[in-house]
Simulated scan of single mutants.
Amino acid sequence: MKTLLPLCLLAACSLAGAASAQTAPAAAQPGSECVALSSDQQLVRKGADRSMLLRNGTDHYIVHFAGSCSSASFSRKLTFVTPGQEGQLCGARASKLRTDTQSCDVTTLEPITAEAFASRARR
């Protein structure tokens, strides 16, 4: 009887570990992070062919595009759209930047410091 108890405990632990592994969420893909968009935003579109700067509240990012997004530099209206996740900006092509004439896939959101944002914005 005493030898069966450790075996039963070992089996129960193995089953519990397998069950938790099945219910654990999948790891996020690199670049698929999302941020909640604030009403306090600043977009720096100077030279925004492949990326642009975003200040979202107190957070700062370089928003990278999948390809050329040349219309971002001169478009009258810029809107981030993430189907099924309104108010979010996500990487991994989950979000798009809509301009007057183009729709550009967002590949990654690169967090940067406020100092790096200011320096890049001045260039």
Rank of each mutant, 00 (worst) to 15 (best):
Q29K: 14
Q29F: 10
Q29A: 13
P30A: 13
P30R: 11
G31K: 08
G31Y: 08
S32D: 13
S32Q: 08
S32I: 07
S32C: 10
S32A: 15
S32H: 06
S32K: 08
E33P: 08
E33V: 11
E33T: 13
C34L: 12
C34I: 13
V35S: 09
A36T: 15
A36C: 00
A36V: 14
L37E: 07
L37S: 05
L37D: 04
L37K: 06
S38T: 13
S39N: 15
S39I: 09
S39E: 15
S39G: 14
D40V: 14
D40Q: 15
D40N: 15
Q41G: 04
Q41T: 15
Q41D: 06
Q41S: 11
Q41M: 15
Q42F: 04
Q42G: 01
Q42V: 14
Q42T: 14
L43A: 13
V44N: 14
V44W: 06
V44R: 14
V44E: 15
V44T: 08
V44I: 13
R45M: 02
R45N: 10
R45E: 01
R45K: 13
R45A: 10
K46W: 08
K46S: 15
K46P: 02
K46G: 10
K46F: 10
K46A: 14
K46R: 13
G47T: 11
A48W: 06
A48L: 10
A48K: 05
A48P: 06
A48F: 04
A48D: 01
A48T: 06
A48E: 00
A48R: 06
A48V: 09
D49S: 07
D49Y: 08
D49E: 10
R50I: 00
R50F: 10
R50W: 10
R50Y: 12
R50C: 03
R50G: 00
S51W: 09
S51R: 14
S51Q: 12
S51F: 08
S51I: 00
S51T: 03
M52K: 02
M52E: 00
M52S: 01
M52Q: 05
M52R: 02
M52G: 02
L53K: 02
L53F: 04
L53Q: 07
L54M: 08
L54H: 03
L54V: 05
L54G: 07
L54W: 04
R55V: 08
R55D: 05
R55H: 05
N56H: 02
N56Y: 04
N56A: 07
N56T: 09
G57H: 01
G57M: 05
T58S: 15
T58N: 13
D59M: 03
D59N: 10
D59A: 14
H60Q: 13
H60K: 09
H60D: 09
H60W: 09
Y61I: 06
Y61V: 05
Y61C: 05
Y61G: 02
I62G: 00
I62H: 01
I62P: 00
I62Y: 01
I62A: 03
I62F: 00
V63G: 01
V63H: 04
V63N: 03
V63L: 04
V63I: 14
V63W: 06
H64V: 01
H64N: 07
H64D: 04
H64A: 04
H64M: 01
H64L: 02
H64R: 09
F65P: 04
F65E: 05
F65D: 02
F65M: 13
A66C: 00
A66E: 09
A66S: 08
G67W: 03
G67K: 07
G67L: 03
